[in-house]
Amino acid sequence: MIEQPARISPSSLPENPRRTFLVRVIQGVHTTIGATLAFVLGGAALAPGLTRRERLWLSAGDLSALRDGEPRAVTLRVARQDGATEAVDRRVVFLVRSGDGGVRALDSTCTHLGCRTRVNADALQIECPCHGGVYDLEGRVVAGPPPRPLDELPTRVEGTRILVQV
């Protein structure tokens, strides 16, 4: 049995309007100081996490290197500012030639929990090493936990040069 202490509250003192007013002012000022600090410091702490890298068209090789029905993994290098330093992200995309002569680019990031998938050239499918996710060459889910097909990146062909937007 927990002993319930008598509730002592400010109201056990004689009610005093001046006192109540002071209490409100004190609460107001401290709340304002706290909110200002939260705005400035919270802003500086969170802002970089909310910015998105601008999209870039990057060259992903020549059309002639692609054969029908055979996905090709290419690594794209994306330079970006990373805090005080400059970082180069390496993005792996699978280029697949589509029937109509165009090119599709599949992001190699598994849509389940973000592992790096790879092409199994013998089974002609894309496999995720983490939890057994399997996609076909179009990026559709064949087996395992991935909730949706691999993301597709916009592509463009200029002459024979393939450009991918990341």
Partner: peptide
């Protein structure tokens, strides 16, 4: 030095902090 420059120049509200 560059990281302090980053705070001063690039970080939103960094110079106030």
């Amino acid at each position: 030095y560059d990281s302090v420059r980053y705070v001063m120049r690039d970080l939103p509200m960094g110079s106030v902090v």
